[in-house]
Simulated assay, not measured.
Amino acid sequence: MRAQAHALEGVMASLIILLGLFFALQAVTVTPLTASLAQQHVADQGQAAATGTLTAAQETGDLRPTLLYWNESRATFHGATGRGFYVAGGPPTALGGMLNETFNPRRLVFNVNLVYLDSAGNRQRRPLVRSGEPPADVVVATRTVTLYDHDRLRDASGEPTNTHLENGSYFAPDVGSGEVYNVVEIEVVIWQG
């Protein structure tokens, strides 16, 4: 009788261990849904970071100086590659520093495009930062900056020059009426690197 009780006790203990293992395996199973939830979490974090960075840059007045950081003689941004855009991170402006500080530690890759109207009223896109070809699942955040005729271009150190947009040679043409020169949308495209 005592042997039967011990045998029954051993069977019950084995069942409890097997059930525990079964539930443990169920808890750590990675399904496609789990992976997509993780990607969604990364996308949500990226969206919040991109929006927050552009909002902060707008509030501190750091968007306009980046747009005006233009080298007339080379017809490109100061320090940009021969193709006219930055490839090793953001431009050497306050906005570029903010983008690098926000995305690089999180291993998020970003491109920055400038969207503006040409003389015919068509939307044009000029790259400011190209870090690669984005995949299909990207996050995009935008801010719009109105440029005025009296805005002055910046030199390589970021200081205003004596050249006003209306008198200078700039990538976006003067298409505005009155004091408005053009409206440029800064588009930040980010993805997991």
Rank of each mutant, 00 (worst) to 15 (best):
R107V: 00
Q47G: 04
F77H: 13
A50Y: 11
A141P: 06
A94Q: 07
T53Q: 03
L25T: 13
V109K: 14
Q47T: 04
G90R: 07
A49D: 09
H78R: 02
S73A: 12
P65V: 15
W70D: 02
L63Q: 08
S131P: 05
T34M: 14
Y69W: 10
Q58T: 15
N113T: 03
A136Q: 09
R83Y: 13
E72P: 05
F110E: 01
H41N: 10
Q124W: 02
E101G: 14
Q45A: 11
P135V: 13
L33G: 09
E59N: 15
N113D: 09
R83G: 12
G121E: 11
G96Q: 11
A80R: 05
A57W: 04
V138W: 04
M98A: 15
H41G: 08
E133F: 04
H78G: 02
V87L: 13
Q26F: 15
A48K: 03
W70F: 06
R83M: 11
G46D: 03
R74I: 04
T29P: 02
F23H: 06
D118R: 05
D62M: 13
P105M: 14
V140R: 12
D44G: 11
E72I: 00
V28E: 03
A24S: 14
A80S: 14
N100S: 14
P32L: 05
Q39D: 11
